[in-house]
Design a protein around this nucleic acid. Structure first.
Lengths: 157, 157
DNA sequence: TGTTATTTGTTGTCATGTAAATAATTACCT
DNA sequence: AGGTAATTATTTACATGACAACAAATAACA
């Protein structure tokens, strides 16, 4: 099983986990992009709608946190989505710094795309057993946590 | 072990594989970026240098293929790397369409960064057993292949 | 109360990714 | 040979991402 451990022993094909992560993520993103293309919706836009469908109207900073993007990128992304009629911006009297973003009617019409990630899961995990799928999610979570921990300790230390 | 299968059964936390892939890849990319920052080198630039360090001078289209990017992105990326003195462009008499990209002296000085991905591997896989690491590489390869196959069949069919 | 720190959102600047269109060159094939 | 197809690289246009700097508003606190 591990007589020729790819990650630690194989000298002819040194393998970068970062590369494999990016290639796998890239393939997944291409699948979503193709599924969303008929609706003129990008993956980034879908991610914003998804957080709003699930959580209701949100502050911009919350959308940024939930989608894993920085605030400036989210601000401009929401700009384009407002122009496209997908979401609305509303000022908040209680805190005049914040802006509440909510789904607009044109975005509500796309709510049937809320569970499209399950189609993507099905495509990507076509050849995986349920046990393999569990393992993959678990391993990815551990990898991400290890990276974030190192970033925190290195950046703050 | 699979009494509460996250990927298929847990109704309270539906999980997107694409999301997890992107978050894990993002964490890995942030780690590399921080390691490369002292050398004023981006991940994309490092990837180009890596292909050249390993394979010698290459056509632009070969760099694009090996790094997994489209040709236009590679063309501009190489532009900036030429400006930075990292690589050189050379015309090929045998085929006047092609341009050969080679490592310049200033890029050769960074060759010690060739194996930096191993440091990243060590950070990301800190909590993984060698068997887990093997499984992760294997699962990622299968996921990517499933996505690419679907894209090919859907796009070409 | 009044000063300082924090939070929130935006804008500027840049790097990078895609797709489409273009130009130049080479390969193919009757 | 000559016309068509394929390959290679670039340019254009646009979306998206990061970081720094900034402005406005609120919170914290001496």
């Amino acid at each position: 099983m591990t007589t020729n451990n790819m990650a630690t022993k194989n000298p002819t094909a040194p393998t970068s986990l970062g590369r494999e992560l990016n290639f796998a993520a890239g393939a997944g993103n291409a699948v979503v992009a193709r599924l969303l293309a008929p609706y003129d919706l990008s993956l980034a836009q879908w991610a914003v709608l998804q957080t709003l469908w699930r959580n209701g109207p949100l502050k911009l900073v919350e959308i940024a946190r939930l989608t894993g993007n920085a605030a400036p990128a989210t601000s401009r992304l929401v700009d384009r989505m407002v122009d496209a009629g997908l979401v609305t911006r509303s000022e908040v009297p209680q805190d005049r710094r914040t802006v509440t973003v909510a789904v607009a009617p044109r975005g509500e019409e796309l709510r049937h795309l809320q569970d499209i990630y399950q189609q993507v899961n099905a495509v990507l995990m076509r050849d995986l057993t349920p046990e393999d799928a569990d393992r993959l999610f678990n391993l990815l979570a551990r990898v991400e946590r290890a990276g974030r921990d190192w970033l925190d300790q290195t950046g703050a230390g």
